[in-house]
Simulated assay, not measured.
Amino acid sequence: MPWLQAHLEVEKSQAPLIELLFEQLGAISITLADAEDEPMLEPPPGAMPLWSHTRVTALFENSTDADDLRARIDRTLSRDNSQKLRLEILEDQAWERTWLEHFRPMQFGQRLWICPTGKQVTAPDATVIHLDPGLAFGTGTHPTTDLCLQWLDGASLKGRTVIDFGCGSGSGILAIAALKLGAARAIAMDHDPQALIATHNNAVQNA
């Protein structure tokens, strides 16, 4: 089933109002993203900063009348904002599989690789972690996870105990990598139950 998707780029001060408007118009999901190229680094606890120019994207049921939606937005917003509205049809797909098609084996350090099901790593000395998308899924591409994986690859882990604190950001990647690289034991912890499910499943998949 296709979906109707609406995009509107606004100043950050207006983003909460646009988000509320889309909710009132029946949006089933709303996403806020960077409309330009303004990196957002780790904010302090409790802070929820927005980009100076924010793209607000709303997803509506396919039965939503696009002309009526545009007219209602026109009536509510100033002309400057409503003219920026972009509507498009988003065809439904097997989203996990579509995303996985672009996920290739990735190397971290000298030996460590993360590889999706159906792909192969041919390096003779490779230490391979097999991962597929799922709940609380992470691929290791986040800069901090990337650096930790590279560090683990070069560390002397034999007989060590490793703590993966906040394992949900990578679904247990760091704990699994440590064990595969020779650690005696790994403790993975997170406050998100889905993260623990994903970590457990990945641990089973990687024996």
Score class of each variant (00 low, 15 high):
Arg97Ala: 14
Thr117Trp: 01
Leu90Tyr: 04
Asp37Ile: 07
Gly46Tyr: 14
Gly46Leu: 13
Ile73Phe: 08
Asn62Ile: 12
Arg111Trp: 09
Thr76Cys: 06
Lys84Asn: 01
Glu19Asn: 09
Gln120Asp: 01
Gly46Asp: 07
Glu19Trp: 13
Glu101Lys: 15
Gln24Gly: 06
Leu90Gly: 00
Trp95His: 09
Leu20Gly: 08
Leu112Phe: 14
Leu100Glu: 07
Glu101Gln: 14
Ile30Leu: 08
Ala123Thr: 00
Asp37Arg: 11
Leu41Glu: 11
Ser82Ala: 08
Glu19Cys: 09
Ser63Tyr: 15
Pro116Gly: 00
Pro45Gly: 12
Ala35Thr: 00
Trp99Pro: 05
Gly118Tyr: 02
Leu87Thr: 00
Glu88Tyr: 03
Pro105Arg: 01
Pro116Cys: 00
Glu101Trp: 11
Val56Arg: 05
Ala71Leu: 15
Arg104His: 13
Glu38Leu: 12
Glu36Arg: 04
Asp74Trp: 15
Leu100Cys: 09
Ile28Val: 14
Pro39Met: 12
Thr31Leu: 06
Phe22Ser: 02
Ala94Val: 09
Pro49Asp: 08
Val56Pro: 07
Pro49Arg: 12
Arg97Asn: 10
Asp37Met: 09
Ile30Glu: 01
Phe60Lys: 03
Leu87Trp: 00
Pro105Ile: 02
Thr57Trp: 01
Ala94Thr: 10
Phe108Gln: 05
Ser52Gln: 14
Ala94Arg: 11
Glu19Gly: 06
Glu19Ala: 12
Arg104Glu: 12
Met106Ser: 06
Asp92Arg: 10
Trp51Met: 10
Thr31Pro: 00
Pro43Val: 14
Glu36His: 02
Leu69Ile: 05
Glu23Ile: 10
Ile28Glu: 07
Met48Glu: 11
Asp34Ile: 11
Asp80Trp: 05
Ala33Leu: 00
Glu36Ser: 03
Thr76Glu: 06
Phe22Ile: 07
Lys84Met: 01
Trp51Glu: 04
Phe60Arg: 03
Glu42Arg: 15
Leu100Gln: 12
Ser63Glu: 11
Met40Leu: 15
Asp92Leu: 14
Ile73Thr: 08
Glu88Lys: 04
Arg75Glu: 14
Ala35Lys: 02
Ala58Lys: 07
Ala47Asp: 04
Arg72Pro: 12
Arg86Lys: 05
Asp80Asn: 05
Ala66Tyr: 00
Glu38Lys: 13
Gly46Ala: 07
Leu112Asn: 04
Ile89Thr: 11
Pro39Gly: 10
Leu69Arg: 00
Leu69Glu: 02
Arg75Ser: 13
Glu61Trp: 12
Asp92Tyr: 15
Ile73Gly: 04
Leu41Val: 13
Leu32Asn: 08
Glu42Pro: 11
Gly26Asn: 08
Trp51Asn: 08
Leu100Val: 04
Glu91Pro: 02
Leu32Lys: 15
